[in-house]
Amino acid sequence: MVNENGVLYTIEGVAAGVLMITTAYLVVSTTVMFTPGDSHIIDMQLEQLGNDVLASMDTPIRYGDPSPLELYITDNDSSGFSNHFLLYANTAAQPGFGRIKFNSTVYYRKDADVGSYHFSDSGDIMTGREHMVNVNRRVFVKDYTNPPPPGPDDRPQSVLLEVTLWRD
């Protein structure tokens, strides 16, 4: 027996299929479209600032001197580093800019192992919910006589200073 019932169900099935696919497309495409467009710009600004601050601190201010950054690591002077870093990072011509927090770690190689120690921070507890950016710089340390135990060997070496920074 032939009637139009089958035709009816096929069209409904096809229509439902089209609807589902277009709905899925709509959901996926709008999700991509609505991603906050400039969060990576904020990351970029923070990363640029962090790299600039470390580069400036790693520049000797007088001919023949070690850089301030090298001295802070040599002397394990975490408060000196913190003050210097926050001064550079938080100085701004207008209020509302600045308020940067940070935490930093030094990585070094000792024989075949890579070790690390906590170096300095801004005194803030990281909750893990901050929007953080990592910057790092290889610092050449000539005279490592006072490393925190069980720190690196006493030899001229490059250590990796990693700074995690975020805005308040």
Binding site: P36, D38, I41
Partner: peptide, 26 residues
């Protein structure tokens, strides 16, 4: 639904246009 999809797709694009201005400034 097709009309709705087209309109909502376009409105999403509209918002992106607004966003991209500050991206450009930055």
């Amino acid at each position: 639904m097709i009309a709705f999809i087209i309109v909502s797709t376009m409105s999403a694009g509209l918002l992106v246009g607004l966003q991209s201005k500050t991206i450009d400034y930055d």
